[in-house]
Design a protein around this nucleic acid. Structure first.
Length: 473
DNA sequence: TTTTGAGTTGTTCGA
DNA sequence: GTCGAACAACTCAAA
């Protein structure tokens, strides 16, 4: 008696443990594990360069854990799945849900096609603690403020399900003669700039679990305060693993549940809540990546200046903390959260460039690039989003540096041309006396840029720009 | 429907 | 150096 063949379609759930779809598929039959590189439907949301790099290694790790039986495909999943179904007489297709608008549209279509083919299509929640359509206000509309969303909407709802263990007996169908390999996806860049990312990351399900354990042991107790200091290791850095589903939010939530209550623990859990909130927003406001959530910002007098944008992207603004952040992003595919806020505020307020410029750059450079988190966060920092920072809250990159990188460890690491500058002038080298600059080997305008805008003037300019839209609808 | 209370992360100024 | 107020009202959520 031969068992039915069923497909588990891997998407953003590149793990074996706590994978509801995979666990269900295993019960149904022999599993054909498939990954489809969808270059047809993603449109402008195609993976950025850093994400492609991550995906290469994440797929490799997954394939290894499946004894090299991961079936790689390229193209429109609708067609790819139908071909596989017909070729192998597949009885059912299983997947965990994705929540980007184009993915929702695509998957709806696929469900229809499956129905027409008399093939079961089963989808599961493997990526969110609470489904976006389940967390709503009493009047049935979505929340727009984080605190009530999280406290009432999430914490008062049914608790997240406990994580599933890895399927004990995983009977896999071997389709490796399909001929396409991970290499064929051309995920790695031709010019190997990605080599600099490598030392910073260990990719895959196992390293993600290891990182979680280390974070719970060493850092979470200091999270609330420590998370603000970019030179310190008090953040979890789980974001890329979460994005690709190498670890599930349920696994993290569950692991923290058994810990002793503390402000730090609450704070870390609420950061998972922010991830949920962003996904909730994207689900209910699918235009989030393009359109200001507050329409009055449509009239905002943004500036267009490619030269200035380039200086921000390359970490050549003359503001050491900003430049450190932007170079951290380029060199590691990541930026500490505190610094993300500061460089974001600087771009949209001091430089007056549209948040979309920052959103696109982060999309390309971040290994944790995530449509929901990225769009919601850029709108937040620009002041036009849900529960956004009040517009007059403009970060001062000098003050922020002195406060959160007081001994300059982070900034000197990524801006080594300033490494001999004393703490007193590290975040404002233009204020240093000539002899101090000389001794530190800093020549402003030569080996480190002079500031591209003046902080006080640009702040006032931003507040004036805001005045111009304040009373418009 | 109206009312009331509250809202992630900051900076600057003047006493 | 430290502290509180102003920034700016507005929108959201819920009673």
């Amino acid at each position: 008696m031969s068992k039915d063949i069923v497909i588990h379609w891997f998407r953003q759930d590149l793990r074996l443990a706590d994978n509801p779809s995979l666990s269900a598929a295993v019960k149904q039959g022999t599993v054909l594990p498939v990954y489809i590189f969808d270059n047809k439907n993603s449109g402008e949301n195609q993976l950025g360069a850093a994400s492609r790099w991550w995906l290469y290694y994440s797929l490799s790790a997954l394939d290894e854990s499946l004894n090299n039986k991961l079936c790689i495909q390229i193209g429109d999943p609708k067609k790819v799945l139908i071909d596989l179904i017909e070729e192998h007489n597949v009885k059912a297709v299983y997947w965990n849900r994705c929540y980007e608008p184009w993915q929702i549209d695509r998957d709806k279509q696929i469900k229809k096609v499956m129905q027409a083919h008399n093939t079961e299509a089963n989808s599961f929640n493997g990526s969110l603690l609470w489904e976006p359509w389940e967390v709503l206000k009493q009047d049935g509309t979505p929340y727009k403020v984080f605190t009530p969303y999280y406290r009432k909407g999430c914490l008062n709802a049914d608790p997240p399900r406990d994580p599933l263990s890895k399927p004990k007996k995983l009977e896999l169908f071997d389709n490796n003669d399909s001929g396409i390999t991970i290499e064929d996806l051309n995920l790695l860049p031709k010019i190997r700039w990605d080599l600099q990312l490598e030392p910073h990351w260990k990719i895959g399900e196992k390293p993600a679990q290891h990182k979680l354990k280390k974070f719970l042991k060493n850092a979470i107790n200091n999270y609330k305060e420590g998370r603000n200091f970019p030179a310190k290791a008090y953040t979890s850095r789980l974001s890329p693993h979460l994005h690709f589903g190498e670890i599930s939010p349920n696994q993290i939530w569950h692991a923290t549940k058994s810990m002793e209550n503390s402000d730090s623990l609450d704070h870390f859990q609420s950061e998972l809540g922010w991830r949920e909130f962003s996904h909730n927003l994207l689900y209910h406001f699918p235009e989030l990546p393009h359109k200001n959530l507050q329409p009055k910002f449509d009239e905002f007098p943004w500036v267009e200046d490619l030269e200035i944008l380039k200086q921000w992207q390359q970490g050549q603004t003359g503001y050491p903390l900003i430049d450190a952040g932007m170079r951290e992003l380029w060199q590691t595919g990541y930026m500490h959260n505190r610094v993300r806020m500061v460089v974001g505020s600087f771009l949209v307020k001091n430089l007056l460039l549209h948040w979309h410029n920052g959103e696109r750059w982060f999309w390309d450079c971040l290994v944790d690039a995530d449509l929901a988190n990225n769009s919601a966060s850029w709108q937040w920092v620009a002041g036009c989003g849900a529960d956004a920072a009040p517009y007059f809250r403009i970060f001062n990159p000098v003050t922020q540096g002195q406060k959160f990188d007081p001994d300059g460890v982070y900034t000197r690491n990524f801006v080594p041309e300033l490494k001999n500058l004393p703490d007193k002038y590290l975040f404002s080298p233009w204020e240093a006396p000539n002899d101090v600059l000389l001794e530190a080997g800093v020549k402003l305008g030569e080996n480190y840029p002079a500031p591209i805008v003046e902080i006080k003037n640009s702040r006032e300019r931003a507040l004036e720009a805001y005045q111009s839209i304040k009373n418009t609808k």
